[in-house]
């Protein structure tokens, strides 16, 4: 039963919105959509195709490709039919923004805050878009590929003195 429901859903979405399947995602079966269609797709999925559960909302950064730079991945699950489906939405690099699906799936609220914090993807219509994991005054969006890892060079014997000059770890002065 779940296989038929999956085929039916994929077919109806492809016909209604003109989507195509993604070759990149091996599991679950995925469609590629436009940012502008996303709210309507979510409405259709929840109300007509019984996908009442948003299980995954994440993004991937493909820098240095600028168009598209981000790919936002939505994962849906249907409790009644036991089917999983996913939708990928490509976004461009400068001022990436997409409308929020928080009105349809309430669980997307914190996921979208995390995407804003980590990637800088703006969600239009989100009631409370602010940083969630990083400190409030942090600058930059850490999970972007052009953000440095912040790797600290370990201090071995051959570079002992150079690193010692740069930071005074361990030697704490009493205030």
């Amino acid at each position: 039963m779940s296989e038929e429901h999956l085929k039916m859903t994929l077919k109806s979405l492809k016909d209604r919105f003109g989507l195509h399947e993604s070759e990149l995602m091996k599991y679950p079966p995925t469609l590629v959509a436009d940012p502008a269609q996303m709210v309507e797709i979510c409405q259709v999925l929840r109300d007509e195709c019984e996908f009442n559960f948003l299980c995954e909302l994440t993004a991937v950064d493909y820098w240095p490709e600028e168009e598209p730079r981000f790919n936002v991945v939505y994962g849906f699950y249907s409790h009644a039919k036991n089917v999983r489906i996913a939708v990928r939405v490509p976004l461009n690099g400068d001022n990436p923004s997409i409308s929020t699906v928080e009105g349809i799936y309430r669980g997307a609220n914190w996921h979208e805050r995390e995407l804003w914090d980590m990637f800088g993807i703006h969600f239009d219509g989100h009631p409370d878009l602010r940083r969630i994991l990083m400190p409030y005054d942090w600058e930059g969006h850490p999970l972007r590929k052009d953000y440095p890892l912040g790797y600290e060079e370990p201090q071995f014997t051959f570079n002992y003195d150079e690193i010692d000059k740069r930071k005074h770890h361990g030697r704490y002065e009493e205030a």
Binding site: L24, M25, K26, Y27, P28, C55, E56, V60, V73, G75, R84, A86
Partner: peptide
């Protein structure tokens, strides 16, 4: 190999 997967 190249690809993406979501495994619960």
């Amino acid at each position: 190999p190249k690809g993406a997967v979501y495994h619960p």
